[in-house]
Amino acid sequence: MRPDRVPAGRGTPLRPPRERAPWPLLAAAGLALLWLTVPLLGLVARAPWARLGEVLGSTPARQALALSAGTAGLATVVVVLLGVPLAWLLARPRSRAAGWLRALVTVPLILPPVVGGVALLSVWGRSGLLGGPLHDLTGWALPFTPWAVVVAQVFVGLPFLVLSVEGSLRALDRRHEEVSATLGATGWQTFTRVTLPLLAPGVLAGAVLAWARALGEFGATITFAGNFPGTTRTVPLQVYLSLEDDPGAALVLSVLLMGVPLVVLLLLRGRWTARW
């Protein structure tokens, strides 16, 4: 034995005692947690639960709910169909432009939604870059239609899906795709039969995030699509409107807007992590 080696004592605990977290960190973390949860609890506490059926059954609420469900659903489909290929492109090995593209994709995340709405108007408005010629040709304009709601929702929801799927793609062992290629599968066959199934959990997670974002979209919608009952007044807009004349209804709808995505997230959470 080397002389510098100290023999291990018999019966001495090998695990050092766990260090206590410093109190400033604990205090700040606790404050952050309260900051996040107290408003949500307030919402639940103040909501007039007895009026649930009455509020949800009212015509404005029913119209808003139907519109929100339809537009957010359609927006999510568009987001998945366009976002997965974009994520695939960004995550391609040896892709040079990826850094720039990723920065571009992130823009709607940090952009104030109102600004997003203004930006969409400047393109699709009656005198906009594309909307002008379109209106001249067909007499139809996108803004202030339900389609505008969908366009705004896709605009704000897309980054969530792209970033989520790109993350999954980076975590993927790309050699699976290489093996598939050596087995004779074309790029498309490999994408549909190998890559996409392996990505499914990431696509699902991203789709849920994008859907939740689309469901809650307010700023870009009111700017770009307006606030017309039955055509562009989604649930968040209805909440804002109700706050003036019927705060109770606003609370009920708010709880709904918070609860539905939360339930969906909780239901899916266990599923996609338990798979494989």
Binding site: D173, E178, V179, A181, G184, A185, P197, L198, W276
Partner: peptide, 21 residues
């Protein structure tokens, strides 16, 4: 030729079986 048209079988160190199949 691209990889998928070479008719070459490849086995890596890890089996890399497609986990969903």
């Amino acid at each position: 030729l691209p990889a998928h048209r070479r008719r070459v079988g490849l086995v890596f160190q890890d089996p890399l079986l497609f986990p969903h199949l």
